[in-house]
């Protein structure tokens, strides 16, 4: 089989079935015409190297075939920035949840006892997350195209212009999601530490005391609010009034509740009676836990306080003319 036939066969392999023979025949015919013309101008039969040079000029079979195929991308360039932000935000949320469950453990599976399993799970969850987000954007893109999204948009529904847009730091957003999930996991099911910490057999449960359960719902809502604000900031990249409100409210309420939990005696309880543990060790553990909760509380209160001026700026921004 000569070089020309091999080339055309290679191109045909990458062509859609319905135009394979027709396009293949045309490529063969046009290249044969080019080779004939070159042979005539040289006044002698072409060498294999000269034929190869003509084929090389025409392009790699993949490139040549691609020009005949319809171009369809999974994610269009206009949606790609949003796609990567959604993917990153979803991944941070999943990783934060996995980290919380690994650090704090659960009944029968004490903290840090399942790091290998957690990494394995994270790998598969991240892969399926990638697949689902990509699939979602694929259909979202088709919907935008079919529904004439870009023709039907309404300029009057554009968000208000602000004198200054306040950028939201991605690192702060990631920290808020991860730490928020850690605290939510602790508030929900406590921490389960390996029993060997206190030289006992069973894992040691440490959680907010049952008599303090009344605070659970406000704490849950506050943590949900600050996690939602962080996720929205990661997607939008700029603070909006609603995200500042969620962030400020969430951190203020969570900070106050956690401050009370950290300072009030009897707010934390363990699954172990004091008598079952070596003297003083249970108390040291409770003090350490209180100290960590206090750090969370102070961080939240600091963030709430520093967000207040930002809310002021965003609240009045619309009333001032935009400088051009």
């Amino acid at each position: 089989m000569n070089l020309l036939q091999r080339y055309v066969a290679a191109v045909k392999r990458h062509l859609p079935r319905e135009k394979r023979e027709d396009v293949g025949a045309e490529i063969h015919s046009s290249l044969a015409d080019s080779l004939d013309a070159l042979e005539e101008s040289n006044g002698r039969p072409l060498t294999d190297a000269e034929i190869a040079a003509v084929l090389k000029r025409r392009g790699h079979p993949l490139q040549v075939a691609a020009a005949y195929n319809s171009t369809r991308v999974m994610i269009s360039p206009r949606n790609f920035p949003l796609y990567t932000r959604v993917l990153a935000t979803a991944f941070v949320a999943v990783a934060g949840g996995m980290l919380a469950s690994t650090l704090f453990g659960r009944p029968g599976m004490p903290a840090l006892s399942n790091v290998g399993d957690a990494l394995h799970d994270l790998y598969w969850i991240a892969l399926s997350l990638f697949a689902w987000v990509t699939l979602f954007f694929f259909f979202f893109d088709s919907w935008m195209e079919r529904g004439n999204f870009f023709r039907r948009w309404d300029p009057s529904r554009l968000p208000p212009a602000r004198r200054e847009d306040v950028p939201a730091s991605p690192a702060a957003g990631v920290a808020d999601i991860v730490l928020g999930m850690l605290m939510a996991s602790f508030a929900e099911s406590g921490a389960w530490l390996p029993g060997r910490l206190l030289h006992v057999d069973a894992p040691l449960g440490l959680r907010i005391a049952e008599s303090w359960q009344l605070l659970q719902w406000p704490l849950r809502l506050a943590l949900l609010a600050l996690i939602a604000a962080a996720a929205l900031n990661l997607l939008q990249r700029f603070w909006s009034r609603s995200t500042v409100l969620l962030h400020l409210g969430g951190h203020a309420v969570a900070g106050l509740i956690l401050l009370v939990v950290a300072l009030a005696p009897g707010s934390l309880q363990t699954s172990l009676a004091s008598a079952a543990a070596p003297a003083g060790q249970l108390e040291s553990l409770l003090y350490t836990a209180r100290f960590l909760v206090l750090l969370f509380a102070l961080r939240s209160l600091y963030l709430a306080a520093s967000a207040a001026p930002r809310l002021g700026r965003l609240a009045f921004a619309d009333e001032r003319p935009v400088a051009h």
Binding site: V23, G59, V64, A67, Y68
Partner: peptide, 11 residues
């Protein structure tokens, strides 16, 4: 016009 452009454009 190179052939890689010409033929697909004709199609």
């Amino acid at each position: 016009v190179d052939e890689g452009t010409l033929y697909p454009l004709l199609r």
